[in-house]
Each structure stands twice: as structure tokens, then as C-alpha cells.
Amino acid sequence: MTGSAPESATAGGLWRPRSSRLRPSRLRPSHPRPPRPRPSRRARAGVPIGLLLPALIGLAFLVLPLAGLLIRTPWSTLLTRLGAPGILDALRLSLLSATLATALCLVFGVPLAWLLARVDFPGRTLIRALVTVPLVLPPVVGGVALLLAFGRRGLLGPWLESTFGITLPFTTAGVVVAESFVAMPFLVIAVEGALRGSDVRFEEAAATLGAGRWTVFRRVTLPLIAPGVVSGAVLCWARALGEFGATITFAGNFPGRTQTMPLAVYLALEQDLPSAIVLSLILLVVSVVILASLRDRWIAAP
């Protein structure tokens, strides 16, 4: 057989004629593929109890709270509660701020990931560790740190206010900043991983064709890592949507201005449990719908 098209298509669509012949290629579902031998029934029945039991408990642990939410939802009064004042405002603010935060993370995070993956500079390991700090930092501590940096008496706050007239704390912009701070590491890590996994020889080939580094990035690197960027952005967006600690510390809890859905849920929990459940349900539905709609298209199962 010659190297016909289906044989030459490997996972990710990269054309690698040699490897595609040496190992079974992971074809996309649209390509014809030989039926893969399924594990026999006996092999599947042989799952050891020591693995099966913890696995099932773990699954239940993840699913039960969601079930509880659904079971306790006041379905009969759902529509009237949805119309309650403040809920749509909080939802709109949450979606808007999470989207803006994701955009901000993309604009600054993708170049940062490129720098970490492609440029060898002293202190790179340290910088990479610093980038991941917000990931392990308690979000409340992040909020305090943001206040110390961008607050009225913080490091940059007075300068921002006097030069640009920008005040961040306790504003909608502050919500976006808090969410970006917490969510950016997710994007940077995902994109850096995608960059490390992508073949730099494509970039070299582009350079031999006369493309400078910016053109190479724009026309070759970015399209090749697009799936990684999108999945990073989705993770980033989901994290921003659920952000609570840093937001309430840095931006406060003003309805219509800085009160996002998680904050509204927390507030409602103290006053009116059914409302809190409805708000939680909305947040759950929105997240699941967006993740599910992107998953098939962009986020490849490992």
C-alpha cells in the first residue's frame, strides 16, 4: 500500500508519514478505521474489588451533592424565583466578568506561556513557579494581595487613580481583575503544555520560508496549538465564573456592580435557602452547557 490519505492522518491532523506507518495512528472518527479489538468480557469482569470500591465511592462523592441540589430544587416556584430582582443582574455580571477575565487572560497569558515554553532565559524555573502561585494560594489571600497592590493605598492603586482615573477595588473592573488573577494560571499552564507538545520544526520550516518570529507565531504556532488554547480558555472561564474568595475580598459584594452569582448564592444561603438552590442550579446548568458544547469540538479526551 502506498501512503494514502487515511493512513497518513495522525491525531491532531499533523502529517507525519513515518510515524503513521510505524504505530497505529489515532484517527479522527470521520476517517475509516479498522475495528479495534475490544477487551473480552472476562477481562472486564476482572476489576479487582480494591479498585472498584474506592472508584465507586469516589464517583458517588462527586455526583451525590449534584443530585442533592437537583432533588431539593423548588421546581414549582422556579420560574417566579428566577424573576426575583437581582438574580438576572448577578447572572449577567457573572457571565460578563468571567468572559472579560478570560479575554484578559488570553491577551496576557498566551504570550507569557510562549515566553516560558520557547525562550530560554535565566530564572525561567522561578518565573514558572511564580505563575502557578495563584493556583495554590487561598483565593481570599489573593484578594488581600490584590488590595495591597491595586487598592487605594496599595502599590499601584494611587498611581492608577491619579494617572488614568482608574479605581479597581469594589468596582466591576475589580471583579474582572480578581477573577483574572485566580484564573490566569489555568490558561498559562494549558497553553504552555500545548506549546511544549507542538513540534518546533514546523516553526523552523516557517522560518526557512522567510517568516519572522511574530509571523511564525501568528500563522503557524497559534493555529497548531489552537485546541490547547481553547481548552485552557474554557478552564480559565469556568474558574473565573466560580470565583468567590478573591472577588469578595477585593471587589466586595455590591448587588448589580460586584455581586456575581457565587456571591449571590452565599448571601442567599443565609436568608433564603430555596433561592440559594435556584441560583446554584443556574450556575450549574450554565457551566455544564458551555463545557459540554465545547468539549466535543475542542477538548480532546486523553
Binding site: 491532531g12 491532523g13 499533523l14 502529517w15 507525519r16 508519514p17 513515518r18 513540534d199 520544526r201 514546523f202 523552523e204 520550516a205 516557517a206 522560518a207 526557512t208 520560508l209 522567510g210 517568516a211 519572522g212 518570529r213 511564525v216 503557524v220 493555529p223 497548531l224
Partner: peptide
């Protein structure tokens, strides 16, 4: 002179055609 400013063409071993 870096690769992008040389007038030197390369046909790579596995071609490296841009897949997208």
C-alpha cells in the same frame, strides 16, 4: 543571519507541511 533572512530553501525529511 537568521533563517528567516537567508535566501535558503529547505525541503525537510518529513516535509513539515503546515497541517492547518
Amino acid at each position: 543571519v537568521p533563517a528567516d533572512r537567508r535566501n535558503v530553501g529547505v525541503v525537510f525529511q518529513d516535509y513539515l507541511l503546515f497541517p492547518h
